[in-house]
Amino acid sequence: MKVKSIHLNEEGLNRFFGSLEAKIMKVLWEKEKLTIKQVHESLKKEDGISLNAVMTVMGRLTDKGHLIKDSSGKGRTRLTFFSPVQNKEQFILEQTKVVTDGLVEDFGSLMVSHLVDNMDKADPDLLLRLEQKLNELKKKS
């Protein structure tokens, strides 16, 4: 899931998320699956954030495609769990392409290349073959 607006001069996750969004994502990346209340419990110790604010932001993150909802139970025992669509590493790797494509586009030929240019043009067959080769080499060693 690609973030729509990137704040290039912000640090870390604040580049991709608002302040509360970043905190919620951090908690969920750590714990993997939590209810709104559980997330709120984790956050209110440090920051005194309201349950409403957490609910609103988690709803927004779900709409943006960063979280998925999973409801279980019925009536009063119904619980809705939220979990991240991607783990932190996957998210960072994906956003890297956006950031560095933006950087390369912005900074033009001052930059030779990012570590890997044109990631989305990589041939899946070649990737598979390379992976197979590495697996074979690991087995041999």
Partner: peptide
């Protein structure tokens, strides 16, 4: 290992179908 780590995740996300060989540096490097 480095290239695979960086490319694999991006590949899974962006391509669900076969793609012909594109004349870009990434493929020649692979």
């Amino acid at each position: 290992q480095v290239l695979l780590a960086v490319l694999k995740n991006n590949q899974v996300k962006s391509q669900g179908y076969g793609v012909h060989f594109v004349n870009e540096s990434v493929n020649y490097r692979l």
